[in-house]
Amino acid sequence: MTPRPRATGAAVSTPRWAWLAAVPGAAFLLAFAVYPIGVLVQNSLGLGRTGLHEQPGSTSAYYRAVLSSETVRSSALTSIGVCVTAVLITVVLAVPLVLHAAARSAAGHDTARLDALFTLPVALPGTIIGFFAIVLIGNTGLLGLWFAPLRGVSYTVPGLVAAYVYFSLPRVVGPLRGAAEALDPAVPEAARSLGAGRVRVLATITLPLLTPAVVAATGTALAIALGGYGTIAVLSQGVRLLPLEVVDQLSAAGFNVATASATGVVLAVLACAFLLLGRALSALLTRRIAR
């Protein structure tokens, strides 16, 4: 590949040797992102490395085994159920928050500390968030000590939903915070001056304008939550989610490279589908609004 930049528009001052700057990055991405994912697909088709109990040779058997496995299917359905519920709850929690933060910053208040607090959990490994659930609603959790029915909830579906809400909150607030800030305050102000009530402005102007960003952020957060392994790794005492199946094929169930690869590809396809669906719907809605 020899990228040869055309000198157009902003690129007028770009020297001829500019493509050299892209070589290390492009080579790195090819070697450590594109090629390994290619090998992953190859392995999943039996064309590359296989485990001790797996026969080499081109086959779709691993995919058929993964897709027809009762365990994988139920893990996938639980994963989708838990993540969709958690992300939808997160969106409902996040929208009033980002609207309030945007209003405050428009009124000249400093929101830096608030923004920092809500971005902090992005840097926490999913394992710590799983542990938070144990500390609050685990078998000896604090809330369980005070209110017995909450004891051990962390290992059930509602507990996982709660943990994934915490996991998703910064990942939804982040992009929505910027989108809410970018909304033109003149439009709702005009509506207000024409006599529309607060609730009406919110329902007919602010929320519809925010919807494309909400849809895109939902798709991204769903993709990240589906693939997140840390939280469920800590809370895996009963309920099973899809990332556990990928890991178990490489550890607990032996070293089944082909099966693990096929499960990994299925997980990746699911996550990609949510991400792309979110982007596509968001683009569609943006065009609708522009018209």
Partner: peptide, 21 residues
């Protein structure tokens, strides 16, 4: 290409990397 890791879950990339290098 650089955005690929945003779409492909980390655990799948992990399996891919260990299977390759």
């Amino acid at each position: 290409l650089a955005n690929l890791p945003l779409a492909v879950p980390g655990i799948a990339i992990s399996v891919a990397l260990i299977g390759t290098y």
